[in-house]
Amino acid sequence: MAGAAIEQLIAHLSKLPGLGPRSSRRAVLHLLKRRETLLVPLLKALTVAAEEVKACGRCGNLDTVDPCAICADPERDDTVICVVEEVADLWALERTHAFKGRYHVLGGILSALDGIGPEDLNIAGLVARAREPAVREIILATSATVDGQTTAHYLTDRLAGLERIVSRLAHGVPIGGELDYLDDGTLSTALKARRPF
């Protein structure tokens, strides 16, 4: 139907999250119709990303500079490190504008099923950073899943003895959540973690 080059572009786009063959076909058509305003700028942005974006050697965040903008920002709080599983989690926390400390991206979580062990994660880098004199607290922001919390407990063990505060994100009722619709695990955890009001 379309030329080989276009079919190839559709095939590549359909591998992206959220896109299937049909939606990628629509996206390609849209790009080709708006060649100057969309396709060319996208091409330039992709080229820059491919050539310049790299993982920060300090925290694991993605940026065009190393150390990344967050690590290089002198306004940020050096005393707190927030440990996240993936860069997407870092970006999610950044969107909240609630955290002004530093980050550390593990690059995954321990998973017996997927054969991911401690040596596959960026744990040695975290321990080295936690040893720095300025650091006072490590926030473990791993998922509230069995694997996520297993990883958090493992990190707690690895950080023991460094005399740093190790904390984790709270588990409980989400904003807008109605008790009737919450699972009993979340409810019981929220009850356990209640605090004076």
Partner: peptide
Amino acid sequence: RARAGPLLDQPLPLAALA
């Protein structure tokens, strides 16, 4: 019954469950 949730903050029972 959510068995995993209540154990998330207990390292040893969580490790045993896993």
